[in-house]
Design a protein around this nucleic acid. Structure first.
Lengths: 348, 348
DNA sequence: TTGTAGGCGTTATCAA
DNA sequence: TTGATAACGCCTACAA
């Protein structure tokens, strides 16, 4: 009962008086075997405690069933949640995931990619952003990116632009006198930039007083505290007595903002309305539940994997990978109204 | 320049007039080649755009450099942070990680394990808890568990018992009249149970008035809110006018408790002292920074991987895996004093 | 310092 | 319905 030596098809073949080929068929095309043979082989596998070896199978048929994942970091819940949802698709597609977290430089990310290629991954999902989509496309591999520059590869992203508009609209409906958007300086090539343009477009289109406040947020909680404190002082001076609608680039930041106001006033003052982005746990668990533009992370992840798998299958059918332009799927955001904008009703 | 066909050692050998063996040596033992030969081969690799194939190498030498990981879930930051830190050890050891999240039943977890074994993983790190350590040990594979029952396999865990004592001691030093510990019903086989015994032992050893409040917390934020509200009412009735030191089983719960008190009183009342567990971002980002028994997650992860790698290496040296009893490494918790217990000083 | 030959455990191709 | 044989791409004695 000690499984010292590995049992191979050869052993099964010898034991059953079939050939290796037949054993292989038992796994890959069982119905081509006589029912009786299937039983015999099945029994032998049991008796000899056979354990399959996918490495050998890969070498023979080229299908690793591996998809590589490269994440930039784990600090933001968004990334760990995306990973969680991607991993969950194992139940649907059976693909296994080789995961790298590339919180370093360009060169180390190239090493990750080289390593992934060496393991013959069939596709890749990229959320890190140091490698250009052009370079990624040159790998000639099914690739899907999320939340990053994606001109030359397929991608799945939240409709950030609509999200930005929704946030502005919600604050507008709350009867705010001035709409503020706090974000970090963002490249127009990155999907999240749409939050800014969506916000601005809505405000301009509706003739709303507004202001874009770009600061270096999201570096650390401590620096965020300092930055937000300063912004609060600034706002209270310049918009004294006016109802301020603040749209922050993520829920953690929004929650921090609410905490600061709470510390100052013992409650969320009535001349403040707050909206975050993501619908992360932070928005639900904040001292005041935060209204937020929710990303459908589960759907994002599912579509990303689906899009990679699609490309993998197309390729198996001999279709060239780049016959058509890259596909950019867009997922609707879901506006979630909570207490930070006056509860589930929208009338402030 | 289209890399249609894969370049193999054969191609390089033909191109350079060396044998396949020599090409192989270039990768595995380059110094056994003449410097001139190295140059020639190196150039050829460049010119032909060779890309290594680790699957073939694995089949030949048996070393996948894969470590399997099974996590129970991703909701608690602890798990995503552990994963993050485990993945980061790639830079140190070069092992790649195949990750499964087993938020389902026993049978699906067995499927994960079977899949991992099929890919010839060299070791495994297990944080999920549906499969007994006995069954894990029977895999005859280097295994390390964390935060779960570990009688028959190696493990790395925080010294939860000491953590429980530290929490109690801190509350004691704050001059609390009564010490409360809120936790969910926990099996004594799980390391986290030590938090309870540590807390109780300290209280009993020092003759402190105390109470253990076991409730079904951690199911969802909403139910946690309801449970904690009830507990607050209960405490305020039974310990009216007394200084209450509350030790909660994790930072998220502690933060929620503080939020509720804040909502009730507009501040953290002076007759409350709060301590959490983990030192997760939630403790820093709470409206009042939460004192906490910090887990050294980076260290935990490093030690876990180190312990797996140790076993892998020992095995390569022909040593039997179970020559000795399983090793249980214990990592010290780090008490972090913050505002929820009156700031960095311990005297309340 | 380099080469020859066999093997790793499957799958694929042709036959029977 | 089943088999024989040659891949798959690399590694490892053993030789030279």
């Amino acid at each position: 009962m000690e499984p010292k030596k590995k049992i191979t098809f050869d052993d099964i073949a010898r034991y059953t008086n079939f050939s290796k080929t037949t054993i292989s068929r038992y796994f890959n095309n069982p119905d081509s075997l006589a029912p009786e043979s299937q039983r015999i082989i099945s029994d032998a596998l049991e008796k000899l405690h056979y354990k399959e070896n996918k490495v050998a199978r890969i070498l023979a048929n080229g299908q690793t069933e591996f998809i590589g994942i490269i994440l930039p970091e784990f600090y933001h819940r968004f990334f760990s949640e995306v990973l969680n949802q991607i991993l969950s698709t194992y139940e649907t597609y059976g693909y296994k995931f080789l995961v790298f977290v590339g919180n370093r430089n360009e060169e180390s990310e190239r090493r990750y990619i080289r390593e992934l290629m060496a393991y013959q991954i069939e596709g890749m999902i990229v959320l890190s952003h140091t490698i250009s989509s052009e370079e990624l496309a040159a790998l000639h591999l099914p690739i899907v990116t999320m939340e990053r520059e994606d001109r030359h590869v397929c991608s799945v992203n939240t409709d950030n632009y609509t999200g930005g508009r929704q946030a502005a609209q919600l604050l507008d409906e709350c009867g705010c006198d001035v709409l503020l958007h706090i974000n970090s300086p963002t490249s127009p090539l990155i999907p999240a930039y749409g939050r800014i343009t969506g916000f601005l477009d809505y405000c301009q289109g509706h003739g709303l007083r507004h202001e874009l406040m770009l600061r270096d947020v999201d570096r650390s909680h401590e620096s965020d505290l300092a930055i937000l404190r300063e912004l609060i002082d600034d706002m209270e001076e310049r918009y004294r007595g006016q109802k301020k609608g603040i749209f922050l680039s993520n829920d953690t930041l929004a929650s921090t903002m609410i905490n600061l106001l709470f510390l100052k006033y013992g409650r969320l003052p009535d001349d403040y309305r707050i909206v975050g982005f993501d619908n992360s746990p932070a928005s639900r668990e904040a001292i005041i539940p935060v209204s937020t533009v929710g990303q459908q992370v589960e759907l994002l992840a599912q579509e990303a994997v689906a899009l990679v798998v699609e490309q993998i299958n197309a390729r198996k059918d001999g279709k060239p990978l780049h016959s058509r332009k890259p596909v950019h799927k867009v997922i609707d955001p879901v506006l979630i109204r909570r207490a930070s904008t006056g509860g589930t009703c929208a009338n402030g």
